[in-house]
């Protein structure tokens, strides 16, 4: 099955390893990932900051790049939610683009959704090691409604122990431009999140959004904690 891979600007620019791991996972489960070379960003930074024209420009570009009927897979809950829930609003007064936006919303899968519902990766006996806890990022959990899939995958790892985190779905303080506009609050929230992670005793924390993971990793660095912060795509790909 051909799938279009939306890397997201953050993974593309800062965390390409998470993108490469996504490709390995998709291939392992019989999908043929194609990376549309003209892709840029879903438009969230502009959308969330109130720049609708710029968000629309990015979204229109996305719809062009990802046109067609193939499923779209992305290693980000936040960007998937953007396409699914906000694109239709951006194009509410443009019937043609609105139809495309809705179609894209149906076609897009956050990586763990695809791995569980389409690829059945949790039945493949992937290997893991050590102790792992999981941060349930906000848009993934509340906007996209993906709650169980990452847990299903993580608890299926042979050789790894999954340790649940208290208040796993509490915001880590990333919030896109929030991190830049109110850095003091952002850091305080990241600290609170880091403390929850540390309290689990896990040696690794994972999640489905690299923005949040980046913010959490920064808090770990500030606190001098040695817990590994890694995108779920990489964690799963290591067990292939």
């Amino acid at each position: 099955m051909r799938v279009l891979l939306f890397g997201t600007c953050l993974v593309d620019t800062f965390f390409p390893e998470a993108g490469e791991a996504t490709v390995r996972l998709l291939r392992r489960f019989g999908a043929e990932p194609v990376f549309p070379k003209g892709q840029t960003c879903c438009g969230q930074p502009a959308f969330n900051a109130g720049y609708e024209a710029q968000a629309r420009a990015a979204a229109e570009h996305f719809l062009r790049e990802f046109d067609g009927d193939d499923p779209i897979v992305t290693p980000s809950g936040s960007c998937a939610a953007m396409v699914k829930h906000h694109y239709p609003r951006l194009f509410r007064d443009d019937p043609k683009l609105l139809a495309k936006a809705k179609r894209a919303g149906e076609r897009i899968h956050e990586l763990t959704q695809f791995l569980v519902h389409v690829a059945k990766a949790h039945e493949a006996g992937l290997r893991g090691k050590g102790t792992v806890t999981y941060h349930a990022s906000c848009h993934l959990t509340r906007s996209l409604g993906v709650r169980e899939e990452p847990l299903t995958l993580l608890s299926s790892l042979k050789g790894a122990a999954f340790l649940p985190m208290p208040d796993a779905a509490r915001c880590c303080g990333f919030g896109g431009t929030f991190m830049a506009k109110l850095p003091e609050i952002s850091c305080a929230l990241a600290d609170e999140k880091a403390a929850s992670i540390e309290a689990t005793g896990a040696d690794t924390v994972t999640g489905c959004d690299s923005g949040c993971l980046m913010n959490i990793a920064d808090a770990m660095r500030r606190r001098g904690t040695k817990i590994r912060v890694v995108h779920i795509a990489q964690l799963l790909a290591e067990g292939l």
């Binding site: 900051a49 720049y51 710029q54 990015a58 229109e60």
Partner: peptide, 30 residues
């Protein structure tokens, strides 16, 4: 909605506005 209004009514930080305008252009041109 209020963030959009903030931008529309000119209360956004000018640096941010320039940054976002550049972003809008780059996002549409690979």
């Amino acid at each position: 909605g209020l963030r959009k209004r903030k931008v529309r009514e000119g209360f956004a930080d000018p640096r941010e506005r320039r940054g976002m305008e550049a972003f809008g252009k780059a996002a549409a041109k690979p």
